[in-house]
Design a protein around this nucleic acid. Sequence first.
RNA 1: GGAGAGAUGGCUGAGCGGUUGAAAGCACCGGUCUUGAAAACCGGCAAAGGGGCAACUCUUUCCUGGGUUCGAAUCCCAGUCUCUCCGCCA
Length: 419
Amino acid sequence: MHNLKEIRKDFEAFKKSLEKRSIDVDLNKLKNLDKENRELIQKKEKLEKEKKDISKSKDKSLFAKSKEISLFLEKITDEQKSTKDDLEKILSKIPNVPHKDVPMGKDEHDNVEVNKSGKIPNFDFIPKSHYELGENLGMLDFDLATKTTGSRFVFVKNKLAMLERALSNFMLDIHTSKNGYEEISPPLLASENTMFGTGQLPKFENDQFEVKLEEGTDRKFLIPTAEVILTNIVKDTIVDIKSLPLRFVASTPCFRKEAGSYGKDTKGMIRQHQFYKVELVSIVEQTKCLEELERMTNCATNILDLLELPYRKMILCTGDMGFSAEKTYDIEVWLPSENKYREISSCSSCSTFQAIRMKTRYKSHDKETVYAGTLNGSGLAVGRTLIAILENYQQKDGSVTVPKILRPYMNNLEKISLN
RNA sequence: GGAGAGAUGGCUGAGCGGUUGAAAGCACCGGUCUUGAAAACCGGCAAAGGGGCAACUCUUUCCUGGGUUCGAAUCCCAGUCUCUCCGCCA
């Protein structure tokens, strides 16, 4: 969320900075509501002061007047409250402003490649897709998931289930022992307020799975990413600056409705309603966001290096960035069957955008209370890593070689095959 | 599910109708002392919002939302959460 005070300082500049992003918000209305709101506040405070003075004076002759003021004050207060609500409603739906480094663009076609890494495998046969490989091995079962649950779910079985588990453990080990992240096993449900904090609500309610609970109780949502729950660890707190940066990692299932992506990636497990992801979250001093973004992205690509998977790093253009981000790198892994790179990680700096929503602050070195910076990134999406391994490590006979670094996590298994 | 107890500043914790934004302690910051540090002593230290170029000033906030009152952290009602005991399930 944006700081109204900052917006006010230079409204035109703010307006301009958002032109790069596709937004459906009436910024002029925002400006007017802000003005109206402040006028009402002044009126209100004047009355409150009057009332307070009377009560302090303990002058009985003025008590009746105070009562009168109360009545009027009630009206003004209601009016101010509803103006404030309208204001917040608009404000909460405005996306973060892109950082200057971010290239202008409309959609994913305008993203810019930063670098490539790894060797694209050369096959002397036509490489199969991950779902062909998985189904032939009898270790990916989409039909079974349709039977028990519905579309966009999958059963991962046998050695591939083991591989999935190995991937999680491997990634967690690297991030905790080498990259300084603290491992967390968090709740998978988040409250409405938590979802608001990271920006999933109110604008993207349609993408979320809400859990049906008893009437009258607080709403709860299945987390679409561990980012939500890990970032909100510092919700409503003034963090000790000495404890920064905070770095958390978790491997959790993620749940997404994927509304609006009907017909997209319907085959295979690229786009599922449920998938495992190892998520990295950093809470930093607001001046250190971009520095941390580079670090975090390196933590993610390091996993691909270790797995010896070819990838490229992209910087997202203004039109393709997520709601809360000021700058985002996508890491895309090579998928032989599609003959192209596909997203396997997304690392974003959210500047103070989420911190303002969550009320996460710290005392800066010059003793000011300021908002923290938050970052999140996948390190990596486990399901898609599984796909990448299947496709890049496939053999002519339909078996799959286990990447060397994972073998210790799989009883030294070297090959996944039918037998 | 039944019975109690509680929710106060970064933390611990007093206050139970009127200069209480809130005692005290810890933590933190500044100073004296010290070769340096520790200790001791002195001083400072909440957040959000409004007005002002600024010094500064005003308002709100003691879980949340209502109510009583000229006046509420303090009284009443509703809700949320936490803890203890019993039951139930793991």
